[in-house]
Computed example of a mutant assay.
Amino acid sequence: MTTRTLIASLIVAVSVPVLAACATAGGPKIGSAPQVEGQKQFDGNAQAAGATQVVNLIAVGKDGEAASGWTVDPAASERVYCDPITPSRSAVTPGLYECSPNAAGANTCWASSTTPYGLLCGMSPWTKELRRFTSNNVLTAVGKIDDPQPWGLELVDGTRCELRHGGAWGGRSDDLVGAYSCDKDHVYVLTADEHAVDKSQPTWTVKTGDLGRPDQQFPAATVVGVRTAVFAAAADGSAA
């Protein structure tokens, strides 16, 4: 046996036990596919990001002006209807308004410093942009609802979703309805009632799926973890 043949034999003899040990020691098995989260049931213990992070956005300061880092659309102020005075569904403190029509987007609004009728409203929880609106009545003090709904949700797979405010949406045969629209095609956060987010565990979860005709059948909704939940708050409020 030559020296080269002897060395090659020793390498093989050492490598095989080492590879076998790696495959049985809790590390990834050679040739196996990586483990992935189940499609129909969410395992909270598998959520690498840990508990859902809650973010309270304060877009307008106590002076009624846009907070640092926020910009205001220069377009002319649009008239909206805030009578009766209604608290924003996404506010964790008093002091935020929700006005109609829904198509205007005046759903998460802070009082501005311009006039007793002035509003600065967030257009999206994912952009630091505000738009001016003018209320049809004086903006008197407003409280908050008992169970605020997140303005925006970032799911564990990176999908971003925004709270629904009216509008004509599709349906499905299992009677689940859309609660949030998402930035991924054919993905909506679904609910059977007004509570779309399950907050019973440190990692909140939602059900996602597609919408179509009211009688259309779709695969069972997928339970997905929530990485980040975005709410709104007033600068002089006390976030609950």
Rank of each mutant, 00 (worst) to 15 (best):
E154Q: 13
S200W: 09
V156G: 11
G158S: 03
A233Y: 01
T3S: 12
D183Q: 03
L96F: 02
G31L: 00
A233S: 09
E162I: 13
R213W: 12
D183R: 04
Q39L: 15
F231I: 09
G212P: 11
P219D: 01
E154C: 03
P34M: 10
G170E: 00
S135N: 06
G212H: 07
T191E: 09
L163W: 08
S88H: 09
D185K: 14
V80S: 10
A239Q: 09
G69L: 06
A51W: 05
D198Y: 07
L10G: 10
S200Q: 13
L130D: 01
G166M: 00
G64Q: 09
A59R: 07
V55F: 11
S124E: 00
E78Q: 15
H165F: 15
P34T: 02
C121F: 06
Q41G: 04
M1W: 11
G225E: 10
M1E: 08
V206W: 03
S135D: 07
Y180C: 03
P84L: 03
S112I: 01
D210Q: 14
R227Q: 12
V187E: 04
G64N: 07
Q39D: 13
C99Y: 01
G118T: 07
R172Q: 03
T5Q: 14
S135A: 15
A33L: 14
V54L: 14
C161R: 00
T203D: 01
L120A: 02
C121K: 05
T222P: 01
L119W: 03
V16W: 02
E154L: 08
S88C: 10
S173L: 11
N136A: 06
E194C: 07
L139A: 09
L57A: 10
V92S: 07
A23F: 00
G64W: 04
G61C: 09
D215Y: 11
R132T: 13
P94T: 03
E129T: 15
V80N: 03
G69H: 03
N107H: 15
S181Y: 05
V60Y: 04
S238E: 12
T134D: 09
H195N: 15
L6Q: 12
P116E: 02
D83E: 05
D215V: 15
D236Q: 12
W169T: 01
W151M: 13
L153G: 04
K184S: 09
P87Q: 05
W126C: 04
P125L: 08
W110F: 12
V189K: 05
G50P: 07
A220I: 11
S9Y: 04
L153P: 05
S68Q: 13
P101C: 01
I30C: 06
A220D: 06
Q47N: 14
P125I: 06
P150V: 10
S173N: 14
V36Y: 06
L120C: 01
T203R: 14
L119V: 05
V230R: 15
Q216W: 01
V12N: 00
V72Y: 01
I145W: 05
I85K: 06
L176H: 11
T228S: 14
R160A: 00
M123R: 15
G122W: 10
G167M: 06
T127G: 08
W126T: 03
V14M: 13
G170I: 03
K40W: 15
A8G: 05
V206S: 07
V226Q: 07
N56W: 02
S200C: 12
V197Q: 10
V60M: 07
L176P: 07
E98P: 05
P150D: 02
V224E: 08
S173K: 15
D175M: 12
I7T: 04
P219N: 02
D236L: 09
L139Y: 04
